[in-house]
Design a protein around this nucleic acid. Structure first.
Lengths: 200, 200
DNA sequence: AATAAACTATGACTAGACTCAGTTTTGATT
DNA sequence: AATCAAAACTGAGTCTAGTCATAGTTTATT
């Protein structure tokens, strides 16, 4: 029984390579033209695979967007966590974290909104969707920690408030009235709302 | 210049009648089978109009759902406003109001979620969508009044908090984890979140 | 009443997401 | 190396929301 020096067979390596080609193709096309202006056929062509094959790797076009955006979102969360350290208050800490998420979400506004839509209304049993929910949970966890450490909030209430913060962020990013707003303006809205709910 | 006893010409009356047939057909079919299981063709057939005609009265299938659900939502808001009078505290008042909205939204869970989705992500320049946003604004207004009158919150902060309450309600109703929950359970979640943000 | 202008209705058609029956590739077994 | 079962791939085909060129109807004008 030889221990495999290369534990992945040709089959597994091929699959991995294909997923990477798909991710690269979708990422580039979505960024350049916007989700709605790109067809799944174009993505399949760019990734050099058959039409049907695409859907073996992502069950829907929405899942494809989740796949692509999750990578950016996870990186933004990491940056956000680091940025918290440079702040003093609970409010400033949360805003430092949130600013990274907002910037990430709004690199391309319509893609960001579609990402949020898929997150809430997509099929949570799909893998890329589950991954997205996990990143959201981590974001809420980070918010809760700030509340516990800097605003003397008890852990259970902090978790509840973190959910509220999440809802606020979602609505401000998703609302169509805000499509034309600047990231600055959206952050200001969020700040006002957070200031109103923070225990005094 | 005779004052018209019947200010509507034949054309206007025909349009009105058609809109009513469409509303009735869509309402019945959506309620019985759920939005996703009904095709626009079926609605057109049931309303006895051509395929293309349907889209003169509602630009998308989503608009059609907004048209139908707005009627129910407006009625629920009215009942909710009345129910507030039977309560004492700000929290109970808001919950009495919200309970009606939750019940209305969850008569058919998937239709309710799709309604919320269209509200946030649909085209706000469409008439039925604008109507929906107006009802949301009225709901927030009612919440703000409760906060001003029963929790001694200043008007501007009350408006901000009403927006937060709206976001909380939206997320709890839309979240896929809550699809299987009872209305009771969802109301309990909302209560916990409201209690956490209410000024103490 | 005749003509014109404006509005309304229609269904064959298009576009694009997604499916599925059949084919090819892979790796295990003899 | 020949055989086979399982896994992965494929693109022609399906389904349905939404469009658009054409046709029909109503109202205003002469």
């Amino acid at each position: 029984m030889p221990v495999e020096p290369q534990p992945l067979g040709r089959r597994e390596r091929n699959k991995q390579a294909k997923l990477e080609r798909i991710t690269a193709a979708a990422s580039q096309l979505f960024a350049e033209y916007g989700v709605d202006e790109v067809t799944t056929q174009q993505i399949a062509d760019a990734a050099d695979i058959g039409t049907g094959t695409l859907f073996l790797y992502a069950k829907t076009k929405g899942e494809l967007l989740l796949l692509v955006q999750n990578l950016h979102y996870a990186a933004a969360l990491e940056r956000g966590r680091a940025a918290v350290a440079d702040t003093e208050t609970a409010l400033d800490g949360m805003l430092a974290l949130i600013a990274e998420v907002v910037d990430c979400n709004r690199v391309q506004v319509e893609n960001g909104r579609t990402y949020l839509r898929e997150m809430v209304f997509g099929d949570p049993s799909e893998p890329h969707h589950a991954e997205a929910l996990s990143i959201v949970a981590q974001t809420q966890q980070a918010v809760a920690e700030i509340l516990v450490e800097r605003a003397q909030v008890a852990a259970p209430e902090a978790a509840t408030l973190a959910g509220v913060v999440s809802a606020i962020m979602f609505m401000d990013l998703a609302a169509s009235v805000n499509v034309g707003a600047s990231n600055q303006e959206i952050l200001a809205q969020i700040r006002t709302q957070l200031a109103a709910i923070l225990p005094r």
